[in-house]
Design a protein around this nucleic acid. Structure first.
Lengths: 220, 220
DNA sequence: TTGCAAACCGACCATCCGGTTTGTACAATG
DNA sequence: CATTGTACAAACCGGATGGTCGGTTTGCAA
């Protein structure tokens, strides 16, 4: 109903046409993240985006195409945002603490995307977005592994540990935090459910004290 | 079509009537775990369970009720199976290694239930099963936290660490393993995707070496 | 044998699904 | 002015959905 005050104004009428498409994309991203592919109908998207159903099919050839577009644009944004995470210097402890903090902050800020990717991992089914997610995660995972391997070469990480496993532990503990967050809130023993940064820092500290060989400088 | 050779035999004819309901339940559990609530139709369940659609509504008043029943019975089974996990003695390292190994083995053996619970965590939505999952997880989580707290009292776990956080790290790393498993398989750096036990043992070792205070006996 | 309730089936219903078609408002182009 | 192309809405389509119903079979008790 409301004409939606997005980035376009009256100055560039050509862009105004794409505005509806943007609104559809944003609405679809939110709904798909919340209810999954099968749990969202075109009617639902049309209603909440304030456009007609036919208009959705005018901009996107099918529901599947719309979903792919959502996933693609979300992944593109994530890739952009994650680029800066890895380029840091300092010792291993500093770098990992920085990475984990930035990573978990990113997950929280873009929780629609986070949920979308988690869904793709779970389903793993016929929908092709799986490979998008794999590609997205794979890039950053490989970069993280490289950092760890380099650290291992410099003696900052125990020789007998698998860098990939440490990377999985780091990333996984962050991702799982958001998966379990709503549940953790109800557990009387848990008081970190509302402070992802603190959680992430503590996890890295735990991992670090195990990773850093006893001969090293014992950061924490 | 096949009359399904479940626990009931000709000795107790009264049970034979419930056999179809059991078959419906099992089929529904598998399908819901694989495709989610919205991704499964009553027709699909009826077809694969070898009963008529009407018969499903004869045994379960609605699709929602069927889903709830599936979740409830699955959780009951999980609770039964997890009971033995915690009652162990030995030092902290032994107990955690045992717990993590048994836990991840359990997750793999009952991956239908695992996926069902992961789904509930993700959706968190209107469906009530969320609280079932929370209750199920909560019990075992609390027991694990207690073990850690006791170990902390005996000086086996650093004083400044939050037992709940360690518990979350232990459980989460196992659960996340299965979530990321299919993706990890495609990562060239990863070679533990097909060996959950080895993965779990390595994770616990990493965590332990950080958990055990330097004054202690340095298990690994 | 009869009576009766539970188990079961298959046709049926209203509704909603993804997708298509039709028609209109409008801006740009000649 | 006529034409063309695009953005859009609304009515519409066949098919699938969750759910209902009437009727038939089955098993047990009187």
């Amino acid at each position: 109903m409301a004409p939606a005050n997005l980035a376009s104004s009256a100055t560039s009428p050509a862009h105004a046409t794409a505005e509806a498409a943007q609104r559809i994309l944003h609405t679809a991203e939110r709904l798909f993240a919340e209810h999954g592919y099968e749990g969202v109908s075109i009617n639902m998207i049309a209603e909440q985006a304030g456009v007609s159903k036919g208009n959705i099919f005018h901009h996107f050839s099918s529901k599947e195409t719309l979903y792919q577009t959502v996933l693609g644009s979300a992944c593109a944004e994530a890739r952009r945002l994650l680029d800066e995470l890895v380029n840091r210097d300092g010792d291993l402890a500093e770098r990992l603490l920085h990475f984990a903090a930035a990573h978990i902050a990113h997950l929280e800020r873009h929780y629609h995307l986070t949920r979308l990717v988690q869904r793709e991992l779970l389903e793993g089914g016929v929908r092709r977005g799986k490979e998008l997610a794999e590609q997205l995660c794979g890039e950053n995972f490989a970069r993280l592994v490289e950092i760890l391997r380099n650290a291992q070469g410099r003696g900052e990480l125990r020789k007998e540990l698998d860098p990939a496993l440490i990377a999985q532990l780091l990333v996984g503990s962050n991702i799982f935090f958001f998966q379990a967050r709503n549940m953790l809130r109800h557990f009387p023993d848990v008081d970190f459910a509302d402070d992802p940064l603190r959680y992430s820092r503590m996890v890295v500290k735990v991992i670090l004290a195990g990773i850093v060989p006893p001969s090293s400088t014992q950061g924490a």
